[in-house]
Structure formats: C-alpha cells, structure tokens
Amino acid sequence: EGLCAVCGDNAACQHYGVRTCEGCKGFFKRTVQKNAKYVCLANKNCPVDKRRRNRCQYCRFQKCLAVGMVKEVVRTD
C-alpha cells in the first residue's frame, strides 16, 4: 500500500505509469477519453491533495501529467 502521486490518498497499484488512487485514475481516464479541456480560475497552481483534489480540474490534470501519467496508454475504444 502506497500513496497517490497526484493527491496523496491511498493507492494500491500503478495506473497509466504512476501509483495513483482510484479517484485520480478515473479522473485521468475520463479526461483523456473525452479530450476534456479545463480552465483554472486562479493562478494555475491550486493545491491538489486528498481533501481538495476536486476543486480545480485544470490543476489536477496538470499534476497528473507532471507526475508522469501517460495519455497514450488510456484506451479510447
């Protein structure tokens, strides 16, 4: 048992190249599959942790990419 590289929640295994929780795994997968574009309403440096991970989708997705999650391994079929 480890911690999610994105939000610090409990994470049992790796998803898309990085140890993440189920919440961040699902968020990343949905974002890539929908080709979603998010906008940060602040300064693009919002805190992303277990308690606040749902407040800014833009910053959460940027953190997913920054920690090494790989868009190309998300299935789109």
Rank of each mutant, 00 (worst) to 15 (best):
V39Y: 03
F28W: 08
K63V: 04
F61W: 09
G17M: 09
N43M: 06
G68R: 03
V18C: 04
R52E: 11
V48W: 04
H15F: 15
R19F: 14
V74P: 03
M69F: 10
L41M: 12
Q57D: 11
R52L: 10
V70Q: 04
R51W: 13
V70L: 10
C40I: 03
C64A: 06
V70D: 07
V70K: 05
R51K: 05
A5E: 02
Q14M: 14
A66L: 11
F27A: 00
D77W: 05
G2E: 15
R30C: 08
Y58A: 12
Y58S: 14
L65A: 06
V39S: 13
E22G: 06
A36M: 08
Q62F: 03
K29L: 12
V70P: 05
Q62L: 06
G26V: 05
K34R: 04
N43H: 15
F61T: 03
K63C: 03
G68T: 02
T31I: 11
R75P: 11
F61G: 00
K29I: 15
V39L: 06
C13M: 15
K25Y: 02
L65E: 10
R75D: 06
A36G: 08
K29S: 14
F61Q: 05
V73D: 07
G23L: 10
C56R: 00
D77R: 04
F61C: 01
C21A: 01
K29Q: 08
C56L: 00
L65G: 04
E22K: 09
L41S: 09
E22V: 05
L65H: 15
A42D: 02
F61K: 07
F28Q: 02
V18R: 04
K63W: 02
E72Y: 01
K29R: 07
G17E: 07
G68W: 01
E72G: 09
D49T: 12
Y16A: 13
D49S: 03
C46F: 00
E22M: 12
A36S: 08
D77L: 08
K37M: 14
C64L: 03
F28P: 00
R51I: 03
G68E: 01
N35M: 06
R53E: 10
E72S: 11
V70F: 08
G23C: 13
F27I: 01
D49N: 02
F27G: 00
K25M: 13
L65N: 14
R52M: 11
Q14C: 09
T76A: 14
L65D: 02
Q62C: 06
F61S: 04
K44V: 03
Q14A: 15
G17V: 03
F27L: 02
A66M: 10
K44M: 12
K34S: 09
N54R: 06
Q57K: 05
R55D: 09
C46A: 00
Q57G: 09
R55E: 10
R19E: 13
G26C: 06
E22D: 13
G26I: 03
R51P: 01
K50Q: 15
N35F: 08
V48M: 10
G26R: 06
N43F: 13
M69D: 01
K25E: 13
N54Q: 10
C56F: 00
R19S: 12
Y16F: 12
G17L: 07
V67H: 08
D77I: 03
T76F: 08
K37T: 13
G2F: 03
V39G: 01
G68C: 02
L65I: 04
H15D: 12
V67T: 09
R19Y: 07
A66V: 06
N54D: 14
D77P: 14
F28N: 01
Q62W: 03
K25T: 07
K37P: 11
R75H: 03
K71W: 05
V73R: 08
V74K: 10
K63T: 12
P47A: 10
L65T: 01
K25S: 10
N43W: 11
C56D: 01
N35V: 02
R53I: 10
H15V: 12
A66G: 11
V18W: 02
K29T: 09
R53Q: 14
L65R: 11
G2S: 09
V32E: 14
K29D: 14
M69V: 04
R55W: 10
K34L: 03
T76V: 11
N43T: 02
F28Y: 15
N43E: 05
P47G: 08
F61I: 12
K37W: 12
L41V: 12
R60F: 07
T76G: 13
Q62N: 03
F27K: 01
D9N: 07
V70W: 04
K71R: 09
V39T: 12
G17C: 15
C59T: 02
Q62R: 04
N54W: 11
C4R: 02
K25V: 13
C7W: 01
Q14K: 15
K44A: 04
H15G: 08
R52C: 09
L41E: 13
F27V: 00
T76W: 08
Y58V: 01
K37C: 06
V73K: 15
C56W: 00
N35L: 08
V73G: 10
N43G: 05
R30E: 07
V39R: 09
T20L: 09
P47E: 08
N54P: 03
R75C: 13
R19V: 11
Q14Y: 15
M69A: 05
Y16I: 02
N35S: 05
R19L: 12
V32C: 09
F28V: 11
K25Q: 11
V67R: 06
A66R: 07
K29H: 13
K63D: 02
Q14R: 09
V74T: 02
N54T: 02
E72I: 06
V67D: 01
L41G: 07
